[in-house]
Each structure stands twice: as structure tokens, then as C-alpha cells.
Design a protein around this nucleic acid. Sequence first.
DNA 1: TATCTATTTCGATGGCTGTCGAAATGTTCG
DNA 2: CGAACATTTCGACAGCCATCGAAATAGATA
Lengths: 94, 94
Amino acid sequence: MAPPIQLTPQQIQRITRALADPNRFEMLRKIHAHPSLSCGNTCSDMTVSPATASHHIRELEMADLITVTREGRYRILEPRHDVWRAYLAELRKF
Amino acid sequence: MAPPIQLTPQQIQRITRALADPNRFEMLRKIHAHPSLSCGNTCSDMTVSPATASHHIRELEMADLITVTREGRYRILEPRHDVWRAYLAELRKF
DNA sequence: TATCTATTTCGATGGCTGTCGAAATGTTCG
DNA sequence: CGAACATTTCGACAGCCATCGAAATAGATA
């Protein structure tokens, strides 16, 4: 299986910040629940402009919480389970 | 043993916000690692004023992440393990 | 090529929040 | 009581960030 990931303090900090926004929190939940959604579908039930949605997606990506790949004219969002698991492992140390 | 706690979306949101500040994040880690510290000892290695420290402690308390009790002229900070466990359980649902 | 759709970039803005100094509150002790 | 210590409250401020509209980019399709 995939080797476990060790997060740096900076990465942990980035992830925590990324989760702090309610819209991003819900987006990540949805991305985990329904992998391979496009940006539009992921944000369809959010009341934000495309510009704002794009900004949030970038934040999630820069926190390594998701990967974004081109698929035709869409962008597909997928969760990084390894990073998420590593983040939970960090919090469990508390 | 203590019954498990079910967090409301608002509580989850409050906790996530409380963790978003690096100083609070470290404070909570320290409170978990060394229960029964006073405010001053908890924040001793932070480079913030007493006023700022007090503000952060209030945020952690309002997020139900810690309890604060008087002990003479000190205030003792203690982690709420039940809430923390419930929060981790929520994130694990992702 | 022209057009339509999906998404990003840019620039600006308003609100939130982390921060502080100073004054106040609460507590112990002499 | 009065001094010393721990912490909080108040008021203000600066920087960050979520948000948007408008324009730009990228890809599919006709």
C-alpha cells in the first residue's frame, strides 16, 4: 500500500487554515464523498461566484488536500487520502 | 465511561476556526501535553502580550476545546478530551 | 474560424481578526 | 489596608482574506 506521509509543521498549518473557511470545509467533504467531480459540480450548491470557487479550490490544492487534473474542458477534483490520513494522525497525537 | 459527544455543525465550525490560528494550535497542543497549566505557563513561550493570550484562551474555551477554572490567583486550563475525540470522529467521516 | 462552456486571473473592497497598551478586576499576602 | 501578581476588558489599529465583476485563458464543437 501507499507509504505513510509525514507532514511538516507548515503543511499542517496550511491544512488547518484551508479547513477554517466553511465553504472550503464543505467542499472538501463533498470531494471526499463524491470523487472525480468537476469544479462546477463541486460548488454547484454553494452561493459563491466562479471566481470565489476557483480561489477556494486553489487553497485546497495548495494545502495538498486535493489534486486537480484536466479532463477535457473540465477540471476534476480528487481527494488526497494519504494527506488526509496523515493530518488526522497528527491531530490524534494531541 | 463518558458518553460520546455529538457535535453540531456550529460547534465543528467553531473548533475548526479556533485551530486556524498558529498560536492557538500550539496552545492546545501544550494544554493536551501538560494539563493543569496556568494561563501564564501555557503561553510562556509565546511572543504575545497577556491581552492577546487571554483572547486566544477565550476562543479555545468558547470552542469547548478547553475548560478554565479558578485556582487561587491562577486560572487552570484543561483539555476537553471528549470534545476533541468527537471532533476527530467527525473529520474521520471524510 | 467563430462560438460556447468551464475555469482562472486581476484588481478592488469590505469585513473579520490578531495584536497591542492601558486600565480594570480579582486574589493572595504582608 | 496596600502592594504585588495573574488575568481580563476596552478601544483602537493594521493586515489578512473571502468575495465579487470583468476580462482573460483554455478546450470542445460546429
